[in-house]
Every structure is written in C-alpha cells, then in structure tokens.
Amino acid sequence: MRSWTFFLIAAAVGAVVFFGAHLVVQNDYVYFAGYTVLQFVVLATAWNILGGYCGYVNFGSAAFFALGAYSTVALHKLAPMPIPVLILIGGIVSGVVGLGMGYLTLRLRGAFFAIATLALAVVLQTLIVNWDYVGGSRGAYVIRPATMQILGFTINYITYLFLVMLTLAVLAITAARAIERSRLGFGFATIRDDELAAEASGVPTLRLKLIATTLSGGLMGMAGAPFPYYIGFLEPSSAFGLAYAVNSIAMPMIGGTTMWAGPLIGALLLGTLQQIATVTISSAVNLLIVGLLLVVFVIIAPKGIVGLVQDRRRARQKP
C-alpha cells in the first residue's frame, strides 16, 4: 500500500515536471509533439500488458487505436460529448473487440493469434473505408474548439488534449505497475513461461489471456479516442498508420518487456527521437530507424534497456 502512495506521488511529480517544462517553452508545437510522445507511452504500455507480460504478440495495435478514434468520429457526428466520455467509450469498443478476437483465437498457438491480429487490422480498415458515415476513404473532419474551460481557467485546446493524454499515460502506467505486483501479474508470467505448467498449477490461462487482451485493446482504444480532435481530419490511412503498429512493438522491445518502466523508457526515447527526426529528416526515414532498432535490439539485447541495466547492477553486486 505504501509503495502505491509513493508511486502515485512520483507519477504526479513527473507529470508536473513534464508539464512545467512545456510551460517554460511557450510554443504550441511542444504540446503537439508532447501529445504524440505520451500517446506512444499509452500504446506501448498497453501492448506490453499482453505482449510483455503474457508473451502474446499483437500486430494489430493500429486497429485498436483506430477503433477508438473512429468511435469518436461516429459519436461526434451523433452528439458532441466531453473527451473523457469519448475515451471511456473508445476504450470499451476496443476492449470488446479485443475480447471477441481473443475468444476466437487464443485457444490456438501464439503464432496464430499474432497472425490473426494482422488480419484484424486489414478487416477493420476495409470496413471503415467502406463506411460512408464516418467519412469512408475520403476521411472526416472533426472541428477542434479553440479553447477549453477547466476549473474557471481558459486554456488552449491543445493544452487540454495534452493534459488528457498525460493523465491517460499516468493511468496506463499505474495499471501496468499494479498488474505486475498482483496475482494477475503472477498469472500472466506463468502464461509467458509455460502454459501447460500454468494450467497444472491451477492457473485459468484462457481467462487470464482474455483479461489481458481486453485490457490491452481497451487502453489502445482509449489512446485513439482523442486523436480525431488532435489531428482535426481523420482518414483511414492515418488512423491505421504503420507507425502505430511498429512503434507499439518496438518501444517495449527496446525498453524492456518484463517491467512497466520498459515501455515508458522505450516510448519516451523513441517517441522523442522520432519527433526530432520528423522535423529534421523525414518521417519515412525515422520509421526505418525504428525498424532497424527493433531488429538490432531483439537480436543483441533481447531484454531491452531495462534488462541491460538490471544485468549490469547484478554483475556489480556479484563481483
């Protein structure tokens, strides 16, 4: 319980420092860039709940993200709603899709699940492209208000979106950290290690895998829900962008998959790197860099940055 309080305080401090840094640099671009980085923190953390803790690879992060984004577009046309509500709904939609897909494929070997997630992205993209209500292949405009009232203060809307994503990121990490130290986390780890032995020890593996898929998918949908307001114009190719699929795998793999800090470090590092590279070089080149880093890391440092640090610390303890 004490570690919990400590963590929440640490998270709040981190948030204030991050937010404060943005206040010092009086420039809206910083908010835009910061939003993207935080969005990757959420995606990477969400991916890691299924991928890192349970060992099931999801290649369809973009699909879950886009589901969240498109449920916002659909609802936006129906009736304007506050963003937290949209996030909740986006999370539920993606979570339910995750649960359904898990139910269909999780009884099979892990490789089949991975392939099915690849399939899901394309099926959903085809559905969206052919669904005129949300703009079809042409895309849809979502008008972003200029300002927002919070607690009597009037703030820039992009600042508001940034704060929302910051809250979501802290929430995601808190959830991941809580899972790690719970019965659930132990159960997830047995699935990753050996499913037969897990069952023999009484672990209900299918149920735990479904929980992980639902949580992971739901968080990705939550990350996607505010996206239409951020981007202003949503088209299938941007919502289902390759960057989401590759980054949400590469960030945890590079940061380290066994601990909540891994995806956080990976996302902050790679996310910032990409923000810089997009401005200075080109967005295609920075995706290439991410792909190369991913391959290099899985071959040379399979435990990621967190693993490298832990190994070094252990080596120092045992001379």
Partner: peptide, 16 residues
C-alpha cells in the same frame, strides 16, 4: 528464445 522475439524480428524485416 521465446517466439515473441522471433516474431518481432520478422516484423522488423517486413517493415524495413
């Protein structure tokens, strides 16, 4: 090594 990393390896190749 777990299948996880093998999959990520091929995914990286595809992407690159």
């Amino acid at each position: 090594q777990d299948a996880l990393r093998g999959l990520a390896f091929f995914f990286g190749l595809l992407f690159i």
